[in-house]
Nucleic acid binder design. Structure first.
Length: 299
DNA sequence: CTCCTTCCCTGGGAGC
DNA sequence: TGCTCCCAGGGAAGGA
């Protein structure tokens, strides 16, 4: 499912195909637009040029030019778990039937190509923000935490955001206000690489553990981007190509299999809580004792 | 403010 | 073959 590396890969694959093109027409097939009626949306988007694409956490933004006296606008996608953004050149073959059936929006471009947004689970929403109407942007985007691959994301920044929270570190990593872009797969993978049990209270981490986690986040996300993302179920990039990082996962989806750390033969376990599962190695990621897992009285 | 629960939705796989 | 059951899970909302 699209987390930071997957959305980054989609963004990079779409950028050369979309930037500079103009949107000739808009087909709203299902009204999954958060803040416009289908008619208003089509009217406000058609005729604009696509000036840039950018990723913010798991959000993908299309920067659109001004049109007919209206201010520039941002088209904001959140693909959730099963969303796809697929660019199809003119004459491209048909989409897989199940994808075609769940296509919600299509933008027709001036070279007769098409950008299709499909979401097999109907969880995703699109927002249109015209001008600087920031309150129209999704709440999650407005409250987004620091980008984990940016230069100013230091171990100290991570520490400040973890040490004020008593919840399990896995749950805190998934909080997009703490760090942007990490989802279930990369939370499990970074905690394994850092040797931290997912159930440890965030505020109980030592400074060495925070440094190890910070390094693991940077390394795991960078490597996943280099592999063009993780395809475990349905993820494909903007050209329809699957990723390659699924072959390098060390714990996610590997419950019952041997830990891959050299010399460790322990069996990967799966912990379920509130409908969400965590995968970890009980030997590389020891559960804290009561003392180790304790936090200061005042945070 | 944090933390916890519930809900949203459909495809795909397991089991019978 | 066809049915039921269960699982995947990010974010919004609401209550403690």
């Amino acid at each position: 499912m699209p987390e930071l590396p997957e959305v980054e890969t989609i963004c990079r694959s779409l950028r050369p195909r979309l930037v500079g093109r103009s949107i000739v027409s808009v087909r709203v097939i299902r009204p999954f637009i958060a803040n416009r009626s289908p008619e208003e949306f089509a009217r406000e988007v058609a005729g604009r040029n696509i000036e840039d694409l950018s990723r913010h956490g798991k959000y993908l933004l299309l920067r659109l030019s001004r049109a007919r006296g209206s201010a520039p606008a941002d088209l904001i996608f959140h693909l959730m778990m099963a969303g796809r953004l697929i660019h199809r050149p003119p004459g491209a073959g048909p989409l897989p039937e199940v994808v075609a059936r769940h296509t919600h929006l299509a933008l027709i471009l001036d070279d007769q190509s098409e950008l299709a947004w499909a979401d097999l689970r109907h969880f995703g929403r699109v927002h249109l923000v015209v001008g600087d109407a920031r309150d129209e942007a999704p709440r999650g985007l407005r409250n987004l935490g620091p980008e984990p691959l940016a230069g100013d994301f230091t171990p100290a920044v991570l520490a400040a955001r973890l040490l004020s929270r008593r919840a399990p570190v896995k749950q805190v990593l998934l909080d997009q206000r703490v760090v942007a872009g990490i989802g279930n797969i990369y939370a499990d993978e970074t905690l394994h690489r850092a040797g931290i049990h997912p159930g440890r209270r965030a505020c109980s981490l030592t400074s060495d553990e925070v440094v190890a986690l910070h390094a693991a986040i940077g390394q795991t996300l960078s490597e996943a981007i280099a592999c063009r993302g993780t395809t475990v179920r349905s993820y494909v990039d903007g050209a329809g190509l699957p990723g390659g990082f699924q072959d390098r996962l060390r714990v996610y989806g590997r419950a019952g299999e041997a830990c891959l750390r050299p010399g460790c033969k322990a069996v990967v376990e799966r912990l379920r809580k509130g409908g969400r599962s965590s995968h970890f190695c009980p030997r590389c990621q020891r559960e804290g004792t009561d003392v180790r897992n304790s936090c200061p009285d005042r945070l």
